[in-house]
């Protein structure tokens, strides 16, 4: 079959979004290293690259707008471009969280987190979960695999569980040493951001399912629970 102009345009959009995935994935990995290894140089790199993420978000938004204006897409093409717009926005927000965590490393950390405390908080696990969700989402889009996208919902539940556990751990620490309240609250905000990264990956997974199957999972916990159950 002849390659249609609309397919060439969609391919260009896909390429731009893949560029965004690559940059944000690197940001996420560097943020992990910056925090867990207290690597200030890495944190600076993340902050410096954030401008690039923002610029790419604007570029993709503009390309999507132009695509809609010129091609009046319908059906699967329309769902794809709408999903791209939302995924683009979610990726940019993940980039923002990475920058924020890197700022924390530079401005509020004085060394690596105490090993025992880090284990109690399960901080490495939450970073791993966020990273896994991100990779699953990327692969699901590239491979157009909804099953992969739907696996993300299960990991998001695990992130939520770790987050709720960390709230209890931090509350306990504050009770034990009130003088460090601010320090602990700032640390709590980092964990909160990692939990939000999970939510953003979750949103991306919903967009992939919407694009491929025209199913709207946004605000549809019942349907998502059903999917999670099917996977267990």
């Amino acid at each position: 079959m002849v390659q249609l102009h609309i397919d060439t345009e969609l391919f260009k959009l896909k390429q731009s979004l893949q560029d965004m995935w690559i940059i944000v994935e690197k940001q996420l990995k560097k943020t992990r290293l910056a925090f867990l290894d207290y690597d200030k140089a890495m944190a600076r790199q993340v902050i410096a690259r954030e401008k690039m993420v923002n610029a790419l978000e604007l570029k993709i938004d503009s390309e999507c707008e132009s695509f809609i204006a010129k091609n009046s897409p319908v059906a699967i093409d329309l769902r794809l471009v709408l999903a791209y717009i939302n995924m683009n926005n979610n990726l940019e927000r993940i980039g923002d969280f990475c920058e924020s965590i890197s700022n924390y490393v530079l401005n509020h950390m004085s060394g690596k987190l105490d090993e025992n405390f880090a284990a109690l908080l399960r901080i490495e696990e939450i970073f791993d979960c966020a990273n896994d969700m991100f990779i699953f989402a990327k692969d699901a889009l590239i491979e157009e695999d909804t099953e992969k996208a739907e696996k993300i919902f299960g990991i998001d539940n695990l992130i939520d569980e770790i987050y709720h556990n960390s709230v209890k751990v931090i509350a306990e620490q504050i009770k034990n040493d009130v003088s460090k309240t601010e320090e602990y609250l700032l640390l709590y905000s980092v964990i909160r951001k990692l939990e939000r990264i999970g939510d953003r990956c979750n949103n991306i997974a919903e967009e992939i399912v919407f694009y491929l199957e025209a199913k709207v999972l946004k605000h549809n916990e019942k349907e998502k629970k059903k999917i999670e159950k099917d996977f267990k």
Partner: peptide, 19 residues
């Protein structure tokens, strides 16, 4: 029909990929 047609032929036609 224009957001989620049920038949592949319809989707191919409305998206201009009929061939």
């Amino acid at each position: 029909i224009f957001t989620n047609p049920q038949k592949e032929a319809t989707q191919n036609y409305v998206t201009g990929r009929f061939g």
